[in-house]
Design a protein around this nucleic acid. Structure first.
Length: 973
DNA sequence: CGGGAACGTGC
DNA sequence: CGCACGTTCCC
């Protein structure tokens, strides 16, 4: 037995608790009960809850537990200025179980109250009424076509966390509208049209695949209590016919209570539809069977809202006005079956075209029975030209958070270039994809690469040597046989050292090569040269393996060199037509006949004795014969150029001469590393320096990523090498914003992970105009550097970052990153202006929860706080700035491009790409003839933002491609 | 609030 | 018994 407040009788009465109910949501009433069900809720709190809920509907003083209404937090006006019915919790009246064998309907008493709280007289419900769509009270024109109609004007959000009853403490965010932003928030909303009398709009929770209630509870938080569905809102001519359901939450019914809850809901509904007549035993039995079937395979992670409209007749009877409408599905954000899919990290961003490489994906919660890893390639138009799925077994899904899989083979196993593809997760059950798709690079087979290299080598050969016969290269080994065997010559290693001492290692070799003394030295006669070569190449072999191997390997190199030097000497005396070709062929032939495909240049540079004289001579000879082309295409079996070797071996002094000779600094080896990557990897600061100080004919590209998906700067940061990072950044600040393709982190993200204040300051202080872009960039897991810091870094790092970030709610345009070290003006003079308040930065950091928007006063370097910025028209431009920043994010930009390059799919020309349509909608049609793809449009928006109507563009984007819009929306407000 | 760990339960 | 997944707890 318990007490509740009987609204009808105006006093507390006792009622029976249904002892047979074990449900956590037991409402305590049986169908036969004559008491009114107010609120199903979890026992053991059920009774208190019901009592309190009853009290909610009353003015003060009637219940012992009821707080005085004057103190109620819900004292808003029920109508806002727009005439939209802004019903808050006070007006959201629970009516669960209305009419369950009940004669008195009372809980709607306060539905008619206007701007004050009062209780209307209880209404008596007549015994029975017809259940059907009410046709009276139609609009006065009487047009039969204008039947009352419910329409959803704001869908609920697609994903929402369902919480268990035990989690429903405190506030946990409400079920917002699909278009909800931080401001303004929206909520599920319906309108009733073609009706002009008072009506009730009801919202309840339904299953998605059946027109039947869901066992979960749609609750409204009210005075510390959760009030369950259905929820009724009153609409009328005066209020408008808009019902907005705010502050709702979804309680995940525990499995053991599913049947019970479902049964109760179905029963309540049936009884309501039956005009509150009691159910027969047979009906109850049927209901139970039906419930059993439904409960068995009800989707617990997906619900939808059901909206219904009723007219309450004078006699209190509820008559449906319009057919019910259902919202889109609401998915449980926490479930692996319906939550968001995301690849957080790849073990490596590259793999061979043959496939079957092991790849590990770290992912957000997935279900091993319901997940696929899809590889796909898109052409420039965003069309999928290839797709394949990674191989893995259920047991390869590790604890729902990682997938170990084998890469699929690429469609063309004989490609001779790298192919950029994407990886995404797919959940077959609902075809949900992970977003964004992560880039992955297929590497051609080595055989193909070296075949190609050979081709380019020999083609360079034949093109420069004109009609040179192929026999020539076969002849060459014989030519080599003419060279003197190097054995037995005196060890001249001191000689080499003398040279280096003489000229000094610090002197740049370019200068060295120009110096008269050195030139003389180099231009000695061939006998001397032979010695030099022997010194270089013969020694090595002896040192390593003894004399037995002298005849092969490196020894061969000295023969080639000797021969080339002889030709060089001869040619200088009497230039010959064939010399150039001969040297070229010797060079190529040497590379082809050597196991590692190292060229002479490779060997000379990497020689462990670092024979300066030999190396310079070789370079000079190559310069002399103008073999630049050859040098550039001359890569060894690892794809290393001479520059790679120089960097690897810390031979910084060769870098400038090689660059001068035209050796490309941007050449990537088979692991994707440029020479600079190697220099950074090996932490050869001198090499890095030489590179950056060099005067390459080709612009150094610091954004190139190796097979780990990293740029040299990424590597430097990962190795926590401040000096290296500093040099790289000072050379090219823009490289800071490059995201790595391993986990989408940019330099700042990575510095955060290193927890290196030094590096952070370096990056933040780089005076980079894209700093906002970097700060707002999200990695593959969706985190900005600050968010990442909050997750992974220490407090110091977090604080440091918080200081440079725009405050919550502050729009990007008003904000210019402060220098980290800059002292903030902490003067605390109170502002007399009520709307403005100057505060200290330390205080600001704490105030992130505040709703007020904050902006930086640029002229003074101080921040101003404004209570309400919505009237500030100057800020109209801000989202545009933000949009432009977002477009500078590689991930977002690429995703937008690929989405917008897809065909529109409707309209007069469904094949027309979306971006064209979007351009026209944004009044940029004049450019559609110039731009070749979405990138044209996006670049325009990014570069020439000022001429773009932001609101128009975004609205159009939303219409053209909601997915693309969502991408921006995530960050836009 | 949202994220995540701990704990429980059933296969 | 161990694992996967459901539920609760906690910051």
């Amino acid at each position: 037995m318990n007490q509740y407040y009987d609204l009808d009788k105006g006093k507390n009465v006792l009622f029976m608790n249904d002892a047979s109910s074990t449900s956590g949501y037991s409402s305590g009433n049986s169908p036969n009960s004559t008491t009114q069900s107010l609120s199903p809720a979890h026992s053991p709190e059920t009774m208190a809850l019901q009592t309190d809920f009853a009290n909610l509907n009353l003015p003060g003083g009637n219940s012992p537990h009821q707080p005085p209404m004057a103190n109620s937090p819900y004292q808003h006006q029920l109508l806002n200025n727009d005439g939209i019915c802004q019903l808050d919790a006070t007006n959201l009246i629970n009516s669960a179980g209305v009419g369950v064998g009940v004669a008195n309907v009372t809980s709607f008493g306060n539905m008619y109250m206007d701007h004050q709280y009062f209780v209307s007289a209880p209404t008596t419900v007549p015994p029975a009424q017809h259940f059907g769509y009410h046709q009276n009270g139609l609009a006065s024109d009487g047009d039969i076509k204008h039947v009352p109609q419910l329409r959803i004007v704001e869908q609920p959000v697609e994903k929402f966390r369902f919480r268990y009853k035990s989690e429903m403490h405190g506030t946990h965010g409400s079920l917002n509208g699909a278009n909800s932003k931080r401001t303004p928030k929206t909520f599920p909303e319906v309108t009733l049209s073609n009706y002009d009398g008072p009506a009730v709009i009801r919202c309840s929770l339904f299953q998605t695949n059946l027109d039947s209630p869901h066992s979960h509870q749609l609750v409204v938080r009210k005075d510390e209590r959760d009030v369950c569905d259905p929820h009724d809102l009153h609409v009328s001519k005066e209020r408008g016919y808009v019902a907005q359901f705010i502050n709702m939450g979804i309680i995940h019914t525990a499995k053991k209570y599913i049947f019970e809850e479902l049964c109760k809901k179905k029963q309540d509904r049936l009884v309501f539809q039956m005009n509150r007549r009691e159910l027969s035993t047979k009906q109850i039995q049927e209901l139970h069977q039906e419930t059993e079937r439904e409960a068995k395979d009800m989707n617990l992670n997906q619900v939808r809202l059901c909206f219904e409209a009723f007219k309450i007749e004078d006699n209190g009877a509820w008559v449906p006005l319009a057919p019910p409408v259902y919202s889109n599905a609401i998915n449980n954000r926490k479930s692996a079956q319906t939550g968001e899919l995301r690849i957080v990290r790849l073990s490596k961003p590259t793999g061979g075209v043959m496939g079957n490489d092991e790849l590990i994906l770290l992912v957000e919660k997935v279900s091993k029975k319901n997940i696929k890893v899809r590889f796909f390639e898109e052409d420039e138009d965003g069309e999928t030209v290839w797709e394949a799925y990674a191989k893995f077994r259920e047991s390869d899904v590790h604890h729902q958070y990682a997938i170990v899989c084998q890469t699929p083979a690429y469609k063309d196993k004989d490609v001779d270039r790298e192919v950029n593809v994407y990886i995404e997760l797919i959940r077959p059950s609902d075809d949900e994809r992970s977003f964004p798709a992560l880039p992955f690079r297929y590497k051609p087979r080595n055989v193909i690469v070296s075949r190609k290299r050979r081709r380019t080598c020999s083609s360079a050969n034949s093109s420069s040597s004109g009609t040179g016969s192929s026999n020539n290269s076969l002849d060459l080994p014989r030519t080599l046989g003419l060279a003197q065997p190097p054995n037995g010559l005196p060890n001249l290693s001191q000689h080499g050292q003398t040279i280096s001492q003489e000229f000094g290692r610090d002197m740049h070799l370019n200068d060295l090569m120009d110096s008269e003394n050195f030139r003389k030295l180099i231009e000695q006669n061939s006998t001397d040269l032979e010695k030099i070569c022997d010194l270089g190449m013969g020694e090595l072999v002896k040192d390593g393996h003894g004399r037995a191997e002298v005849a092969s390997g490196r020894n061969l190199t000295s023969k080639y060199l000797n021969t080339i030097f002889k030709i060089f000497d001869q040619d200088r005396r009497t230039p010959t037509e064939s010399s150039h070709r001969q040297v070229e062929e010797l060079f190529t032939d040497h590379a082809l006949n050597n196991e590692n495909n190292d060229t002479l240049l490779h060997e000379v540079i990497s020689h462990k004795k670092d024979n300066l004289k030999l190396a310079i001579k070789t370079i000079q000879v190559m310069n002399y014969f103008n073999l630049k082309e050859l040098v550039n295409s001359a890569l060894n079996a690892d794809g290393d150029s001479a520059l790679h070797v120089a960097c690897q071996q810390d031979r910084a002094h060769y870098i400038r001469p090689l660059l001068g000779m035209g050796c490309s600094p941007n050449q990537q080896n088979h692991a994707g590393n440029t020479p600079l990557h190697l220099a950074v990897k090996e932490e050869h600061l001198n090499c890095v320096e030489s590179f950056l100080n060099g005067v390459p004919t080709v612009q150094l590209d610091l954004s190139l990523k190796n097979d780990d998906g990293l740029t040299p700067l990424h590597m430097a940061i990962r190795q926590n090498k401040y000096d290296v990072a500093k040099k790289l950044i000072s050379h090219d600040r823009s490289s800071i914003s490059v995201a790595n393709t391993m986990d989408g982190n940019n330099a700042l993200h990575m510095a955060v992970l290193e927890q290196s204040v030094e590096l952070l300051v370096l990056i933040l202080d780089a005076q980079n105009q894209n700093l906002t872009d970097i700060l707002l960039a999200r990695n593959a897991a969706g985190y900005t550097p600050l968010e990442l810091a909050r997750h992974k870094a220490n407090e110091r790092v977090v604080k440091l970052l918080e200081n440079v970030y725009p405050e919550k709610g502050e729009l990007a345009m008003t904000w210019i990153p402060r220098k980290v070290k800059e002292e903030i003006d902490t003067s605390s003079d109170e502002s007399s202006d009520a709307g403005q308040l100057e505060i200290k930065s330390e205080e600001m950091d704490i105030k992130t929860e505040d709703e007020e928007s904050v902006e930086l006063d640029l002229s003074s370097g101080r921040r101003r706080m404004e209570v309400d910025s919505s009237k500030d028209t100057e800020k109209e431009q801000d989202p545009l700035i933000k949009l432009r920043l977002l477009l500078s994010n590689e991930f977002i930009y690429d995703q937008l491009c690929s989405l917008l390059n897809k065909p529109l799919g409707y309209g007069s020309d469904p094949q027309e790409p979306k971006w064209k349509h979007l351009a026209r909608q944004s009044h940029l049609q004049q450019f559609t003839f110039i731009w070749l793809g979405a990138d044209g449009l996006l670049d325009h928006v990014r570069e020439k933002g000022a001429s773009v109507e932001f609101a128009t563009f975004v609205r159009a984007l939303q219409a053209v491609d909601p997915q693309a819009y969502a991408l921006l929306d995530r960050d836009l407000r």
